[in-house]
Amino acid sequence: MSVIVLVEHTGGIIKKKNFEAVQYAAQIAKKTATTLTAVVLGNATNAEMEGLGAYGAQKVLHVADTRLNDLHARAYCKALLAAAEKEKSKIIITLHDISGRTVAPRVAVQLKAGIVAGALSIPDLEKGFVIKKAVFSGKAFAYVNILSDVKVIMLMPNAFPAVKAEGKAVVEQLAVSFDEKDFGVKVKSIDKVTGEVSLADAELVVSGGRGMKGPENWGILEDLAKELGAATACSRPVADSHWRPHHEHVGQTGGTVRPNLYIAVGISGAIQHLAGVNGSKTIVVINKDPEAPFFKAANYGIVGDAMEVLPRLTAAVRKFKEQHK
């Protein structure tokens, strides 16, 4: 009996959030006196898979079918179920991200398992199997008890630290027989966003609102983002006015981000916007209106004109980087 965790990779690269999931799962395995098996689907190198041992996985089950390089709900579900059966798992863990949200609920249905989506804590076993998660778009937390024998947990990215230690996982191949139906969704084309930091995974985000005055002014915001290695985002009016692409819109009806640092430039801080960013660890607000509601939700505030403050901040970051080389 062991805990299993799904480890995703994009084009063979395992992102940090997956190490968080492995470490989280390893702690649950320890707490429930069992071992941890990671499941890797599609192309992956042995070195990478063995490397998961450094985050607490004893074993890796590798389903090497290259069709699994793309996300297929049915096939991923089947592979996870096969792994769970082999390991006689009672606890199955994925991330609360696109892949996790596509596959974990389906696995839960097949196993009649209760599920917590967006877990923020290690289960408390004293009152059952109780996990904390955010509800009402971050305005409250709920403590959810999973009542079923088998449990599925989707861990919120950037909520649990991943600390590398020593260790090597044993890699085992797992054969799963797929049929045509498991790949019913055909991928016609893929547009990868390259050269930019992906917003959903970004640890640092620089975001602009109407206070940026127009799309022609975004250069100075991008300069700051580039200097910090941050992703860029925007408020809804900016996306709706087509100053910036829709995928950059964060807030109630757009995307949700949980970076370590969110710098909001010229965004008033409507409640709909806050709902998408209030999981951020540190918020900096730059706005020329001292009454902007966003200041109430911020850790650091600057009252000033974005056009003047942004270049200064970029220069200060550059200077800091020089000093801390």
Binding site: I115, V130, K132, V135, K139, A140, F141, A142, V144, N145
Partner: peptide
């Protein structure tokens, strides 16, 4: 299969 035991602000 799940039950919310409590909430927290």
């Amino acid at each position: 299969l799940t039950a919310i035991l409590s909430y927290e602000l």
